[in-house]
Design a protein around this nucleic acid. Structure first.
Length: 362
DNA sequence: TAGAAGGATAGCA
DNA sequence: TGCTATCCTTCTA
């Protein structure tokens, strides 16, 4: 795994079609109010109104949907996209493939299990929802630049028809931001996520320079919240990535251009960037207490001490993220222990079961 | 019995 | 080469 930055991610990037660094890692992955977790099934087209309704929330909130507290999640999932779009629009509401062979409840065409198939449908929805909200945020911020498009988001061709979204206008790609746009985005993100003012630390920086900075560089410029900011930037970068990748005629980051190879490339992690690290994933969950407080929570956020309340579920979520169905707490904890010698995570001074501590807390 | 700790090995990019 | 997954053994609460 590489130097993935924290992103919001939640679902395996390969599933979401996101570059792994997307997922904020808290970012992928880092921001939900009780209204955003399982409860937030009525997606609002508006940008997050509270820090907990952040863009990152979209990723992690979908984890809730993917997390089958009951086995009917797959059947419920389509309804989860009941935002503004009328439910009668099939492209907005993926349904179980009706072409599945009669009598075959476990498999759908392509060899996927019904669960996998449904998962991909939900994931497709996630992509659409995230892009819509970023689009809205762009409008609010009056950020203009970047790519034009016909507004067509092409999902897995074999599974869903093209998803027609609002015209994906401009400004999605942080790489195209001017220093002024960067400052707007900074202000907005600070406000949305209650981060300390960081505008000065990133003054005069254009989007291209911003995007070139590592998480560590973010942290150096802004020790308080720099990493979170970096994670949010990852989301935007990922949205742009998805946008470019899914736009007709776009230059794909992978060599594949055909429908088939495009589908195949989704599962090729080499095509989607660098994967999320476990410690980043844990931070993501910790930053979403409303959604994941049942599974993992801070004991002392200032010191970075957290407790895994439901080891099985945390491992399960991690397994989903990494597309490792066999993941369990034993393996996850082994990975955590690998961080001991790297100085990323350690056991607190007073060691307790399922309690760990980030060496460098936020 | 579950969790902690750590060695060893394999796969992947 | 670094990171992670996986399997294993030993120890502890």
């Amino acid at each position: 795994m590489g130097s993935a930055s924290p992103g919001l991610s939640s679902v395996s990037p390969s599933h979401l079609l996101l570059p792994p660094d997307t997922v904020s890692r808290t970012g992928l992955e880092k921001a939900a109010a009780g209204a955003v977790g399982l409860e937030r099934r009525d997606w609002s087209p508006s940008p997050p109104a509270t820090p907990e309704q952040g863009l990152s929330a979209f990723y992690l909130s979908y984890f809730d949907m993917l997390y089958p507290e009951d086995s009917s999640w797959a059947a419920k999932a389509p309804g989860a996209s009941s935002r503004e779009e009328p439910p009668e629009e099939p492209e907005q509401c993926p349904v179980i493939d009706s072409q599945a062979p009669a009598g075959s409840l476990d498999l759908v065409p392509g060899g996927l299990t019904l669960e996998e198939h449904s998962l991909e449908q939900v994931q497709s929805m996630v992509v659409g929802e995230v892009l819509k909200d970023i689009e809205t945020a762009c409008k609010l911020l009056n950020i203009t630049a970047g790519l034009g498009s016909d507004g067509t988001i092409r999902m897995r061709p074999s599974l869903t028809p093209p998803l027609k979204l609002l015209p994906m206008s401009t400004g999605h790609d942080p790489m195209d931001w001017s220093p002024s746009n960067v400052q707007k985005w900074l202000l907005w993100t600070e406000h949305q996520y209650r981060l300390p003012p960081m505008g000065k630390a990133f003054q005069e920086l254009a989007g291209k320079e911003l995007c070139a900075m590592s998480e560590e560089q973010f942290r150096q410029r802004s020790p308080l919240g720099g990493d979170v900011l970096h994670a949010h930037l990852d989301i935007w970068k990922s949205a742009a990535w998805m946008k470019e990748r899914t736009s007709p005629g776009a230059i794909h980051y992978c060599a594949s251009t055909s429908e088939e190879s495009w589908t195949d490339s989704e599962v090729d992690s080499s095509c989607s960037g660098q994967p999320i690290h476990l410690w980043q994933f844990l931070k993501e969950l910790l930053l979403k207490p409303h959604s994941y407080g049942r599974f993992i929570r801070w004991l002392n956020k200032e010191k970075g001490i957290f407790k895994i309340e439901d080891s099985a579920q945390v491992a399960r979520l991690w397994g989903i993220r990494k597309n490792r169905p066999a993941m369990n707490y034993d393996k996850l904890s082994r990975s955590i222990r690998q961080y001991y010698k790297k100085g990323i995570i350690r056991k607190p001074d007073i060691s307790q079961r399922l309690v760990y501590q980030f060496v460098h807390p936020i």
